[in-house]
Simulated scan of single mutants.
Amino acid sequence: MKNRRLWIVSAATTGLLLLSGGTASAATDYELAYWPMNEAPGARTMRDATGHGFDGAIGREVAVGLRSGDHIAYGFERLEPDTPPARPGHVVTVPDDDRLDPGDRDYAIGMRLRTRDHFGNIVQKGQATVPGGSFKLQIPNGRVQCWFRGSRTSLLVTAPKPINDGQWHTVRCERTREGVTLFIDRRPVASRPGWTGRIANSWPLAIGGKTTCDQIDVGCDYFAGDIDYVAVDVARSRW
């Protein structure tokens, strides 16, 4: 397994967020899913290292086994936005499972990535108008955005600076009762207060773009770059 561990904001940082009107760190002390993305070239199954069984299907256009120093990653080639045809082989999908839905829990999704491009959906579960709500992380104009859409409201936070510099960055987004907070390289960079309400849909978790799109009426928003890992942390589960 890669050298990754759960992390939450320190008490000092949480205090700064509260003083500035931001949101406190989620109590995401349970690693629900962790995809280290270190399979060998040619692999078509993305393994969940937690043992919880959230294995995914790797699209045939996704490059597997890319080595960068001591890291192994998946590569997603650049595809022109809104240009047919749709390319479902560009996406990694994890089948729908109720446990992967945020529900009413504190919920965090994190990853390590690099890109030189300025568009694309990185990770999502559900799309804009699907019943039950949805969430996604995307990178328009090279700036990471985190969006949670729940039964009560939608909250969108945007990083103040782009990260499409070709360097590795960690990205993490936390949803709590207090609001949504975005972290870049372990530092809080944007937050919005509020409670989204429950989020639970019947869609797969997708990495690298949308699963239902045609590049005509619905853009697929394909991500371009490399992803080193993706993880989901939640408040201690009751199931």
Rank of each mutant, 00 (worst) to 15 (best):
N3F: 03
N3T: 06
R5E: 09
L6A: 11
L6E: 11
L17S: 08
S20D: 12
T23A: 08
A24L: 08
E31V: 07
E31L: 14
A33N: 10
A33D: 04
Y34P: 00
W35C: 02
G42Q: 11
T50R: 10
G53Y: 11
G53M: 15
F54L: 14
A57D: 15
I58E: 15
V64T: 11
R67F: 07
I72F: 15
G75D: 12
R78N: 13
L79P: 11
T83D: 09
R87P: 01
H90A: 09
T93W: 11
V94L: 13
D96C: 15
D101R: 10
G103Q: 15
G103F: 15
D104K: 15
D104W: 15
D106N: 06
D106A: 04
I109S: 01
M111T: 13
L113N: 07
D117P: 00
G120K: 13
N121T: 15
G126N: 04
G126T: 05
Q127F: 07
Q127N: 02
A128G: 13
P131E: 14
G133S: 10
S134Y: 06
K136M: 08
P140N: 09
G142R: 09
Q145V: 14
F148D: 01
S154Q: 04
P160T: 00
Q167I: 06
Q167A: 12
W168F: 08
W168G: 00
G179K: 02
T181V: 07
I184H: 03
I184Q: 03
V189C: 03
V189I: 04
S191C: 08
G197S: 09
G197I: 01
G197V: 06
A200P: 03
N201A: 12
G209Y: 13
K210D: 12
K210Y: 12
K210S: 04
D214E: 05
D214V: 03
D214Y: 02
D217Y: 13
D217C: 00
V218C: 00
G219T: 12
D226R: 15
I227V: 09
Y229G: 00
A231Y: 09
D233T: 14
V234C: 13
A235R: 10
R236D: 03
S237I: 06
R238F: 09
